[in-house]
Design a protein around this nucleic acid. Structure first.
Lengths: 335, 335
DNA sequence: TTAAATAATGTAAACGGTTACATTTATAAA
DNA sequence: TTTATAAATGTAACCGTTTACATTATTTAA
């Protein structure tokens, strides 16, 4: 039915090897022969079979990518970075999301191994201990992004979550705030959430501000959660004057809740987010937030991984990129 | 190196066929034998080779998905619908985005065919005429979502873009607006943008409101574009009192611009978006917008496609789902 | 018991490429 | 010319599965 390399070979009066060569190493075959074969492939609507090719070459030039959820636009930007870098080097990517569901991570890794991807890009460390075990017993290059990897055998490219959070607290303090709450992502869902919280705790400690668990709330990353959490904070007998949100999505919800409570963000209440999504600049008020190098992180990660796959390097990369606190108008100066 | 079915067979003292059966039709092999094989597979860390499997089965249980950009969260929701439905039927998906770049669509289709996906889900009709031609000459099931397909041989699942836009205009009129502008997506980038514009035009005509090209602007879908476009509209000598935005992202930018111009949305200026993203409800003011059935569209599309792949149907599905105009507070009543 | 029917397993070709090695053809040097 | 060398092509085994068909083992019925 579908034309194969053999059909083309027969039609062109050459061997399969020659056809294979025009596909993989065109310069090895005489121009005249090559053109003839190319023409016939065209005429026959030949489509290369990557399954067969991958099987015999033992390589698919494909990267597997695992993200938490496709729904949060911040992962779109690092994915784009990965996509671009991979494409530039002739690799394509398979994208899968765990949606924070138990077992999905392992499923995806299994799937990727079965499909014989050449390498895997993780968003954060593998969360499920079974995943780590599985990876260890099989043999596949992978890299973690968004976090420092747990083992120093595993390469990573990240930014400093702790430091970024620390700087947020610093900034709040510098603006005169002492009662600083936090709406965090769930620790068990992502290691990053915990790191940001650690940075927050450290920041407080550094300024001798007592940690008060009543004004730190763990919630899933969603607008609704942010709104709910902020509602609760504002009903506290001693409500915070400043709130650090674990990501911009939570911050959007927090902003909405604050308005419902007739609080005026940027004049009597401060909010800072994390990620710097496209929309954050047009929030009302424009949201002060931490800008992270998503695109760069993705492309550096993909390149490093491909280097490993192609044997171009033996060292384990450990990149830590810089973040920026983008000052806008959501934090008032208290006197 | 890697263990194969042959290794397992040898170790278990059975033939490859038997091992293959425990993978594909476990009930066909005697329990005792099966357990032994399963145990050995476990011990040897056996990983199924989907390339080899796909090659001989001539099926990969994989769907290729083409979206415009991963950056717009609205495509995340339909993708999720597709993902879920596919997973439920044992299919996995490969996701690729064109980023509206010339030639990417055809590239993706080529890639998917080479990888032997069982079917392709398009977001909108193939934009590039070469894609259509390519698809026609090869032989692969596909479905279009988000739009009515161009040929009645190709199945689609969509909502009525024209009607939804028409209703937006209707609503503006009912609120007393007569000067209604539009910030549209680019026609050449997506057919949907044009449809929405058509609905807008039709709506105006229906109420005998003259069409004024000075207050319709085509822009790429981005916050920055929305802002820019709205700025321009408001500088018009006879600015609109109501603006229909081709999607919510544009609307966010438009809201920001309106505020910069000291216009009060919901009291002296009306804005309506399209998509109903998660953030739209927490905009200030909450954005009136068209809710589209993204998730449902995705899952219905995937299911219909899989039905075709598995030969469970011969008819060409043509689903048109309903949209809802979600009334919030971004449109004032004019007297 | 034995024959017939059924269940379990094995055999071997096929899927569509790649590639080490061998052979043929063309080109350059003597 | 002849020979040495390089370029172009061919041969055939291999990659890891599946599956139609054949064979053997087990169960059931007579």
């Amino acid at each position: 039915m579908a034309t194969t390399i053999s059909d083309i070979a027969r039609l062109a009066g050459v061997s399969r090897a020659t056809v294979s060569r025009v596909i993989n190493n065109p310069e090895q075959v005489k121009e005249k022969t090559r053109n003839k074969i190319l023409r016939i492939m065209e005429e026959q609507n030949y489509v290369y079979n990557a399954l067969a090719g991958g099987l015999s070459k033992n390589s698919t030039r494909t990267l597997g990518l695992i993200i938490p959820t496709i729904t949060n636009p911040i992962f779109a930007v690092s994915t784009k970075g990965i996509q671009n870098a991979a494409a530039a080097r002739g690799y394509s990517i398979i994208l899968g999301s765990t949606e924070y569901a138990e077992g999905m991570e392992l499923n995806l890794v299994r799937l990727y191994l079965e499909k014989r991807v050449d390498g895997i890009v993780f968003t954060g460390n593998p969360q499920d201990p079974r995943t780590a075990e599985y990876l260890a017993s099989r043999q596949i290059p992978y890299i973690v992004t968004w976090e420092v990897s747990q083992s120093d055998r595993v390469p990573f490219v990240t930014f400093n979550n702790i430091k970024a959070a620390y700087q947020v607290v610093d900034y709040f303090i510098s603006m005169g705030h002492r009662r600083i709450g936090m709406i965090s992502g769930r620790f068990y869902e992502t290691g990053r959430a915990k790191k940001r919280w650690e940075g927050y705790v450290e920041g407080l400690k550094n300024w001798d501000v007592p940690y008060d668990e009543n004004i730190v709330i763990q919630k899933e990353y969603s607008v609704a959660s942010g709104r709910e959490a902020m509602g609760r904070l504002l009903r506290d007998p001693n409500p915070p004057t400043a709130v650090f949100c674990g990501n911009d999505i939570l911050a959007y919800g927090a902003i909405a809740a604050a308005k419902e409570h007739k609080r005026s963000i940027g004049t009597d209440l401060g909010i800072i987010g994390f990620d710097d999504l496209e929309m954050s600049a047009v929030m009302d008020p424009p949201l002060t937030t931490v800008r992270i190098p998503g695109h760069e992180m993705g492309s550096m990660g993909a390149n490093a991984l491909i280097d490993i796959i192609e044997g171009k390097t033996t060292e384990t990369v450990q990149y830590v990129l810089e973040t920026d606190l983008i000052l806008r108008s959501s934090v008032p100066k208290l006197k």
